[in-house]
């Protein structure tokens, strides 16, 4: 088993942390995992992305050209990665930041109004966790519980008070993605 996940957005949207949470959950579930960020000069105020590979054996390439799973937190990321998705893949798009519909019908695109949902929960910084929760709907290798445990185990003590809202964000993202994926033919 090997799955590759690409997460992309603006610097400041929690792209890298979202990937780390997935990596922690994979590690704690006993899997091999790599997390690699884009660390080019474009990170300063521009786009950021990271790639997570999870597998049950020694991982070769930490990067992937055609991802089977991706999160696009903004329009530039959506435009860039939609054409690169594998047929049949899952692309989770932050609807709050894009103004167009899907161009491809051979992949599953899930639109999540993550910014508005995050504000409803009470912290707009939770948009990344909503998107991660949504992605889990297409990533059975990592359970919602495993991800929550990972957050609990690896979030610094000073941030532990934020756990309930993070859990709420993950669960809301997960269920809205599940609903959208269920109504598809």
């Amino acid at each position: 088993m090997q799955k590759e996940i690409l997460i992309a957005g603006f610097g400041g949207q929690g792209v890298l942390f979202a990937g780390q949470v997935l990596a922690y959950a994979a590690m704690d579930s006993g899997m091999e995992v790599t997390w690699i960020p884009s660390y080019g000069p474009e990170m300063r105020g521009g786009t950021a992305n990271c790639t997570i590979v999870i597998a049950d054996e020694e991982i070769g390439s930490p990067l992937v050209q055609y991802p089977p799973l991706a999160i696009a937190l903004n329009l530039p990321s959506y435009d860039k990665y939609e054409p690169l998705m594998q047929p049949g893949s899952l692309l989770v798009v932050n609807q709050s930041m894009v103004d167009r519909l899907a161009k491809r019908n051979d992949i599953v695109t899930v639109f999540i109004p993550a910014n508005e949902m995050a504000e409803q929960i009470g912290d707009k910084k939770l948009a990344n966790m909503i998107m991660v929760g949504a992605l889990l709907a297409g990533l059975p290798e990592i359970s919602l519980e495993a991800l929550e445990t990972a957050l609990k185990n690896h979030l610094p003590v000073r941030h532990q008070k934020l756990l309930p809202k993070n859990f709420e964000a993950l669960r809301k993202g997960f269920s809205i993605a599940q609903e959208q994926m269920a109504v598809r033919p």
Partner: peptide, 10 residues
Amino acid sequence: DGSIGQMMEP
């Protein structure tokens, strides 16, 4: 190389 330096792994 840069990717070994920047990559996180267990």
